[in-house]
């Protein structure tokens, strides 16, 4: 894998830090008038999601991380692994719980997700920004209340629980924003 010098650092570059793949969020060049120049970087650990800060001497090099992002179709879960497929090649990948921990509640069969791979192994899954999911459980709303004020919790087919307007009934298909985890609207079947 390529090595990167600090003067190639920029947001989005994937590098290895403490044996973990990380993405640079921000890079600041620091130069005391007569002293050593530094690169102060903010990085996200792609395995844990944690954001840390790190300083390098200017001109120092670090290993790049072999990290790629691929669009994949979610197939199914067997309880232990979550299975995905590259639509063009039919190549399949199985992700363990660590990789899907943040996204599993939005995963619906056939949906196209983004998988982040490190050395060809699944690191994390980003669900589509919007998903359409069926309500499997919610309190029956008051008859005639269509105002949408207030709200109530509803359980969706994937197990996710979101806050929905009072008029939403069991069996309805809803559009959800996965980034905020919020109800957007009813979806047309």
């Amino acid at each position: 894998m390529a090595r990167y010098s600090t003067n190639e650092f920029k947001a989005g570059l994937k590098i290895m830090i403490d044996a973990d793949p990380c993405a640079i969020i921000e890079n600041e060049f620091i130069k005391p008038g007569k002293g050593q120049a530094f690169s102060r970087v903010k990085i996200r650990n792609l395995k844990t999601g944690r954001v840390i800060e790190r300083t390098f001497k200017s001109g120092e090099s670090v290993d790049g991380a072999d990290v790629v992002e691929l669009d994949m179709q979610y197939l199914y879960s067997d309880g232990q692994f979550w299975h995905f497929m590259v639509p063009d090649t039919f190549e399949q990948y199985q992700a363990d719980e660590n990789a899907v921990i943040d996204s599993m509640k939005w995963l619906k069969d056939q949906d196209i997700c983004t998988m982040t791979l490190w050395n060809d192994a699944p690191l994390s899954i980003t669900p589509p920004n919007f998903v359409e999911l069926t309500v499997t459980d919610t309190d029956p709303g008051l008859k005639g209340d269509t105002s949408g004020g207030g709200g109530k919790p509803a359980t969706l087919e994937t197990g996710a629980v979101v806050r929905v307007p009072l008029f939403v009934q069991i069996g309805e298909l809803l559009k959800i924003d996965t980034r905020s985890g919020e109800y957007v609207s009813r979806a047309k079947e």
Binding site: I30, P32, G35, F38, R40, T55, F56, K57
Partner: peptide, 26 residues
């Protein structure tokens, strides 16, 4: 919370001064 200073500066006093001054004082 700047543990990377320890490995980066080793026993170079001037490097320590530059690091601390630019990160913590300036």
């Amino acid at each position: 919370n700047i543990p990377d200073a320890v490995t980066l500066c080793e026993d170079n006093h001037d490097l320590w001064l530059d690091f601390i001054f630019s990160h913590k004082i300036q």
